[in-house]
Design a protein around this nucleic acid. Sequence first.
RNA 1: GUGGGUAUAGUUCAGUGGCAGAACGCCAGACUGUGGCUCUGGAUGUCGUGGGUUCGACCCCCACUACCCACCCCA
Length: 440
Amino acid sequence: MAGSIKSVRGTRDLLPPETETWNFVEATVRDVFRVYHFQEIRTPILEDLQLFQRSVGEETDIVSKEMFAWEDRARAQSEKGQWLALRPENTAGVVRAYIEHKLWERPGLQRFYYIGPQFRRERPQKGRYRQFYQIGAEVVGPSAAGSESPAVDAELLEMLATLLDRLGIQGWSLKLNSVGCANDRPIYLQALRDALKDVVHTMCSDCQRRAVTNPLRVLDCKVPEDQPIIEKLPRMADYLDESCRTHFAEVRKILTAMDVPFTIDHRLVRGLDYYTRTAFEFTHGALGAQNAILGGGRYDGLSESLGGPPAPGIGFAIGEDRLVMTLQESAGVADRPADVYIAPLGAGMNLHAAKLARELRKQGVVVIAGDESFKLKKSLETASKLGVSFALILGENEVNSGQYALKNLSTGEQAGVGKAEIAGIVKPLSAIPKRSEGSL
RNA sequence: GUGGGUAUAGUUCAGUGGCAGAACGCCAGACUGUGGCUCUGGAUGUCGUGGGUUCGACCCCCACUACCCACCCCA
């Protein structure tokens, strides 16, 4: 259609049956998080631009080139407009809410999760969209509540392993590193710069640029020729101070005790400024270049940089689009058909079909009704194309006798049944347990 | 922001400088209340947009746009 309006670049419509998979993922997430006592938080999509400048970091790519931001109209002529941004991630918003509502006054640690859209103005490609969805969780609170404990890190990671297993995702791997803290990282960075000084001219052009802008990212380089050089660069692990080192050791110890498999990746770095200490990434092959399905880490100084009290925390974000993608690699998506198709036959029958449908739906039966103008043949044909297992023929005979012609569309058997029996025959057994909505 | 590829029916894709195609899907029909299989018929397109070459362009040339893939970055 020339001239018609289309979805904007990097955004997309999620249609059935794919939305079934999304619902399955979200239902499983809520179910798993619940037993860890994580509760849902919903923060605005629109935030003050400064929130991200001060948390994610003004020099990061996310803030410096990928944000949707604009100056909002001033409220009064005497005032300036306010700079707003569509959130590029959700941790900053959660911590902002933590500070704004003085949530440290609540007892214990705050454990939140969120599910929602995020926005980054990047060039779209496989597994990367301008509007994408993240499922994330955060544990924040005062140190006295235990927010700095390595047990929190381990619990969060174990929860993620459980979630991926429950979703039926196979072949994931967990990469773990410690990126240090405000204490030891400057020392490491200096050591890294010093080491790079002599060798950087032999590296790829990207690395030469990164050595200046963000030396940590050099560790991330994938150019084969650079690998031997990178292997010889100093490692963060050797520069961790006493407290960071024991913290990291304790995280690993608990994970091992819980049988959560992981590998240490000395070169794992994160692209947001606020990360400290534990940093991690879950990856999955068969995702193309965007193989990270989730990432996260500690952010012990974030609250302070947003004007709040000390509130160490740790969190992660799952790329829901990517998660759904890996799920669809293994299991194909299928429409979930209705339980029964009512075929009203002849003038005046729509009314009877509506009444019957209402009664059946009250009993939890999934009903689709045809129209009295359809020929029976067309109704049955439509019903089988929709994959419905039963068709219920509703004509004058049925209304008069109270015996409804119920046809099993897979066997072809047909019988007259009373109104009260319909739901029992038509409803699949799997529909009976209440909590099993959304199985694949 | 950079590079490569692609753009034709609802979908997946053929196609040729001279009438626009297939498969699947969709709609209708094959004796009036019985589907799936089969058969018959039908509709659907500014051939991405704009320019140029040509007697004539869906096809050749140029520009633009969008999508896909990769770099970058990240989830």
